[in-house]
Design a protein around this nucleic acid. Structure first.
Lengths: 192, 192, 192, 192
DNA sequence: CATGAATGAGAGTTCATTCAT
DNA sequence: GATGAATGAACTCTCATTCAT
């Protein structure tokens, strides 16, 4: 009995995810250029040829991973979109971020790598990714203003930089980074 | 009449710098793997072959750049080594860092890239670079303690993460980053 | 439908032989260093890239050829291994050697070349090859002793040198070398 | 006081020899292609550039070495040219050959190498070298005839092959080869 | 649908040779 | 004359991509 279209579609989706997650891991561990298609195919348990029925090129694979990761990110942080951030929501937001940090470490590593080498990723995609985050900044600025920070527009950047730096160091020094203590410090300064 | 040894030495030093600075720029802009020896040679105005009279390999070139950059960094921050940081010294230190940030943006970009792709840099070198910075942390911790921070050991990490994040964002968004305002904020929180 | 594993295996074996025999000819004719991978690939009718699915390196290709040739050699001379050489067997041995001489001239040429440039071949392989021939010497020594030669241990070396010299000259002067007459002389002196 | 022309000529000759003998050693040890001009220059204690005022190319250097070696060889064996070889002369000839064997081992190794890779040496030179040896064969044939060998024309080839084989093995297995005993065997069979 | 043998452009590297000094 | 910095052609090897099966 041949498979139904839906079954086929499911298999395909499963395989896509499987390939993307293998690729994500290897891109993160070895870098985009050093991770070869052969490596990824083997790691994902499929043939090289099959990869090309799912992705047009190695770059396409990278883009697909980045977009999927960003979408997931946005979903996770899909706060009640009333444009206002309460302290409880902010605490939840920070907790989520720190929680996801290590779970998604491959993604974050890849994200930073790619950010640092803008030539490997076309500008269109980059702007697309950016546009997703922008709205958060507006909400965040209001939040910081309501918390009594002067220059909330600058504080947004400061806060964002802080989180980036924490993220980067936590990922790179996974074993030594005092992630929980740092989180408490962030909460203390921005929530309580 | 052949050139004297000193003449040759001078030519060689000049060429080394010339090649290294071309390579630094291209490594930073395009990434280590995407920047080819041919690119670098052309950018430096020398032949591919000549590169190998100065560096044993592409990796050797990278290492040479990183080490030279680090040494320069350490020299620039060679505070009076009495193991104590005054507020004036701290202000000077922060000012220097922000000043050098953009001047050395290629170096920093490369530094972050390399940090994220540990496979391109052998562990020995990495540890060597690390060992150079370590002493600063101890001094910094004492400083933070004297400034009344509880948990100074955690605050060191927090501070370092903050600076990393600022550095990263400033480099990547050179044109938009409110670098001076951010600097003032850092000074306000850690010096005044 | 993809090829079965067996089909693939057959294709691969064929290609291996095809590449090795092209390489053998060019290594022999031009020398290991002068025969380029591009030459060999073209001569074998395959792409440069494909060579590296079959052999890890140019050196690996050389080693593979030498080992395969030696194995064949040993098979061809697999006398009844009772440790004794009769005159009939000796005659057969000499006839076989002279017969194979020209058929395998590329192999012999390569073998001598390689022997003369010990740096292209690692010692491990060389010893391995040598160990295959050693047993013959012991048998040969007994034979020579039984034929009334004084100092059979020296005569073995003398005989071996003689054959090497004949081999070398026959290969190099294929068109002029009186190979049959020389063979008769050898038989006359060592068999009859 | 500037050097006289003769002094200059002497220096030049000395340097030529010095370069040639360095090159000979390295060609023999590493092979023609693997021994680099830089290696040879360093080994000879001169600059690369200077090499090219003595020799037009690496090949020219090789040819020069081969021709010089051959000339020396011929001088050494410049028997009384009456076209007849006495047994005493033959004994002397064999003794000389075995004596020179190890003294000139680099030369012989190179000679065999080159013989086996005819493409590195142009045919003109090769024929030239050959023409020098030819006369010896005629004399040798007569000698063998007078000693009662049937088919002296074949015996010449046999004898020459034998010597080649001994030479080859003695050079390659310097430490183990029973050179003196082999020599006695040759003398016993061809002189006494 | 699925495979992996096959391709070929292009990477890093070497080295005989040249030439300004 | 003498040097060695500089060149560039040619090498070995890699790998994203294609396509016959």
């Amino acid at each position: 009995m041949p498979r139904t279209k839906q079954q086929n579609e499911k298999i395909k989706q499963g395989r896509r995810v499987q390939i993307e997650s293998s690729a994500l891991e290897l891109f993160a561990k070895r870098g985009f250029h050093s991770a070869t298609i052969a490596d990824i195919a083997e790691h994902a348990g499929v043939s090289k040829g099959l990869m090309y029925s799912y992705f047009n090129s190695k770059e396409d694979l990278l883009h697909s991973i980045l977009v999927r990761g960003f979408k997931k990110l946005v979903e996770d942080f899909d706060l009640n979109h009333d444009g206002v951030l309460t302290t409880d929501e902010m605490r939840f937001y920070i907790n989520s971020l720190f929680k996801g940090m290590m779970e998604e470490k491959y993604y974050w590593k890849l994200y930073f790598s790619v950010t640092l080498q803008p030539e490997v990723i076309d500008k269109v995609l980059f702007d697309e990714l950016l546009s997703i985050v922008k709205p958060f900044f507006a909400v965040l600025e209001k939040y910081l203003e309501s918390r009594g920070f002067e220059q909330p527009n600058i504080e947004v950047v400061y806060f964002h930089s802080l989180l980036d730096g924490i993220l980067l160091n936590a990922i790179m020094n996974e074993d030594f980074y005092p992630i929980d203590e740092i989180k408490e410090l962030v909460i203390k300064r921005y929530v309580k």
